[in-house]
Design a protein around this nucleic acid. Sequence first.
DNA 1: ACAATACCCTACTTTTTTGGTAGAATATAG
DNA 2: CTATATTCTACCAAAAAAGTAGGGTATTGT
Lengths: 139, 139
Amino acid sequence: MRLTTMTTYAVQAMIELADRPAGTVVSLREIAGRHGINLKYLERIFSRLCRSGLIESKKGPGGGYFLRRRADSIKISEIMEAVGESRAPVRCLAKAEDKYCSQAETCSIRPYWKRMKETIDEFLDSSTLYDIIKKNKND
Amino acid sequence: MRLTTMTTYAVQAMIELADRPAGTVVSLREIAGRHGINLKYLERIFSRLCRSGLIESKKGPGGGYFLRRRADSIKISEIMEAVGESRAPVRCLAKAEDKYCSQAETCSIRPYWKRMKETIDEFLDSSTLYDIIKKNKND
DNA sequence: ACAATACCCTACTTTTTTGGTAGAATATAG
DNA sequence: CTATATTCTACCAAAAAAGTAGGGTATTGT
């Protein structure tokens, strides 16, 4: 039941972007350096975030990435989705794998795992980047 | 965010035991056969469940395993605990790993992961074997 | 007693997933 | 033009999970 480090990196990085004033961009080199993340690895993560439309890039010198939407409209679940983190506790509940288990219809435990997934989804769907930042600033 | 198959096997098997009338035992061979689980693999799982005190064994011909407590007193979280499934979404929240991240104290995201863990724990702590069986029988 | 049944322990192998690397291509500000 | 930065396509290594194998030990019905 552990998130991949790719997911935690992605959230960390998104927090970084959210913390910057609008109109500024952040380079990967900067983020990678500060968090001790391999640059190439970060690149892969950001390309996914980009493809999902959560962030946008500005190329060339002085370029970098920036949030495409307001921090309070970006759900944590969206970030996970972008980097491919599954939120299903069991394989038979993952997307496009409904046919993985032939006995899915009669399985007595599946409904339980489904409720578990819903609980997790609800949590991740109801929190945004802004919530994390805000909570932190209240200290 | 996926449970290991060992965990899902463990829950499946515990449901089997819970579904039997009191006083009866179930052999591993039987469970392994019905669910298509490798016998040796199941043995390992059951030895852990046994060590955790969730089930008990009866040796000899006609022997097998049975629940040590009532189904409505066995939490799903206990089963996970028994087979070593971590419920922490990130490593720095896992047991005996508080020192994994040196910046745990100042980390802005950690409190969020902690709330996530609490949400999951709450779900798993508040459901028992009996709940799963019962829900199923209502169909 | 003893053989049948079933649990118990240790080590190993394979597979899958995750994490990390490398190198080159493309775009752009100055 | 060129330095900086993102994009794309592979590939490789480490770790974790899953599955196997084989021998050993305890119990009990007969």
